[in-house]
Structure formats: C-alpha cells, structure tokens
C-alpha cells in the first residue's frame, strides 16, 4: 500500500531527506575534489588541437607575478586564453594585452627563423592574435574600504558573473557558428584555470567547483576545469588567506619557498615546491 501523501510532510521525513542529500553531496564532493596523488595520476596523452585556459588576474602585484609565471607559455598547446580581470582594474587588462603582444612578436620571430630551419611534419601552429584570447571583466568581490557586512552580497554577484567567462569566451564573430577546433574550444569550458591569489581567483575556482559538482556542460565527466594555484613568491613563511581557502580544492597547489612545502589543505599537507617559478 502506498504511503499517504501527508506522511511526506512530517519532520522525520524532512530529516531523512536532508541526511540523504547531505550524504549524496559529500560523496559527490569527495568524488570531484583532488586526491592525494592527483598530479601524477593523470594519464599521459597528446595535446588536443585546441586547449582553452582561464587566467585570473588581480591587483598590481598578483598580475605582475602571473605574467612572470606565464613567460614561456606555449601558444601551440594553450591555444585559447581568457583573462579574467576585476571591474575597474584597467592596469591588469592592459598588461594582458601587452603580454599577448609579446606572444605575437615571439611567434613572428619563430616563424621567420623557421624559414631557414627545416620544418618538421607534425609541427603545430603558434596560436596568437585576437582570435586566440579575450579579456572578461567581472565585478569586484570587495572594493577597498567596503564594509565586511555587505561583502557576502557583492561576492555572490561576482560568483554569478564568473560563470559567463567560465562557460565560454566572448565571440569574435557572434553570428557565425564555431567551425575550427579553436572556435569550438573557445565556446567550451576551460581545460585549465590558473590563479595566484586575488579574491576574484577564489571565486572563479568556487564557480568551477560548482560546475564540477553538478557536472555542468560535462565539466566533471570530461575532466574540464583543472585548477592550478600558485602562491605569491613574496610568501615565504605563511600562506595567504586565498591560499588557505583554496589549498584543499585545487588540483595543483604550488608554493615558491621550501619552508611552505606540505602546508595547507584540510586533509594534510598538499603544497608542492619546485623552486621559484616566477
């Protein structure tokens, strides 16, 4: 005999429902969060023809360090690049444009050299120029001198707006359907997210976790949105707040001083040290 409909509204039923959802959510969280031996466990593979990366820029110092980290970026592998900047941060946006210009200059230099060197058959093209990058602006999570009381609300606004650049880049030709692998990758979730400490980075990683949790656009099943956090090289002995918040949830958690190796994470040390990276 089917239970009466009214029995669905009892307290015990609500508790049972809540506990079930909680257990399911925990299992899902365990499933999507990186394990202890995450970075070596990824199966080696050939790079796809197009790969999209998301780079979160922050205030002066963070932006500066980010472009030092990315100085040897391989544009033939990381073909689509989205830079996320906070509202009002014209400096970071300008630096992103300048960085892309240096990538472009380097690419034309390489091409000039390649005319004299014998080309190999499997060479990939260097992907630079306007079709290969975009800059997305999202509202600031916390303005300078903003009261702590209103910060959760503005952070929520930032979180909601972070999904748009996460799901796709702005189209260069909005009326044409994507045809090349590059255009298709640009319209998809990023393969890799890189951040180094601004508050915006924490929120973008949170948005990526939500996408993984609900497997939005196949985020989790297709292993999209892998995350790398790099602690500032100015942090020698203690981790920053962003680092502490993200240590347990990012795929790679990198520090630049030996003293911080093994720090962070909720389940035990997670920080990797491979020397100074900037």
């Amino acid at each position: 005999m089917a239970p009466q409909l009214t029995s669905l509204y009892t307290t015990s039923f609500l508790i049972a429902l809540f506990v079930t959802l909680l257990v399911a959510a925990c299992l899902r969280a365990i499933n999507i969060l990186p394990g202890r031996t995450c970075h070596s466990a990824k199966a080696p593979r050939k790079a796809a023809p197009a790969t999209r990366i998301l780079i979160v820029l922050g205030s002066g110092g963070h932006t500066h360090e980010m472009f030092h980290l990315l100085r040897d970026l391989d544009t033939s592998r990381y073909t689509q690049r989205t830079y996320i900047v906070s509202g009002g941060d014209a400096f970071s946006a300008q630096r992103a444009v300048e960085f892309e210009q240096t990538l472009e200059d380097r690419a034309s230099e390489t091409r000039n050299k390649a005319t004299t060197v014998r080309r190999r058959g499997t060479e990939r093209p260097l992907c630079v120029g306007a079709e290969h990058f975009n800059i997305a602006t999202i509202p600031r999570a916390r303005k300078i001198h903003q009261s702590l009381l209103t910060t959760p609300f503005t952070s929520l606004v930032t979180l909601v707006s972070a999904f748009s650049p996460l799901f796709r880049s702005d189209r260069l030709h909005p009326n044409l359907p994507p045809t090349t692998p590059y255009e298709i990758a640009a319209q998809d979730l990023p393969d890799l997210i890189i951040t180094n400490g601004p508050a915006t980075g924490v929120i973008v990683v949170l948005a990526a976790l939500i996408a993984k949790f609900f497997n939005l656009k196949g985020c989790s099943s297709r292993s999209k949105c892998r995350t790398i956090y790099v602690e500032s090289f100015a942090r020698v002995k203690t981790l920053s707040l962003s680092a502490k918040l993200l240590a347990g949830v990012v795929d790679r958690f990198l520090v630049q001083w030996e003293e911080l190796e093994g720090e962070g994470g909720y389940v035990g040390g997670h920080a990797e040290y491979w020397g100074i990276l900037v």
Partner: peptide, 23 residues
Amino acid sequence: TSGKHRETKSFAAIMDETMGFLD
C-alpha cells in the same frame, strides 16, 4: 637549479604535467 639535490620544474612544465601533455 634551486634547493639541494632536488628536481626543479618550470611553470610551463607544471602546466603540461597537470594537463597530462607529454608529447
């Protein structure tokens, strides 16, 4: 090289490693 008797990596290499790009 930095640190004693340890392997060092560039950030570019760490990106490739995270993606599993070994070609």
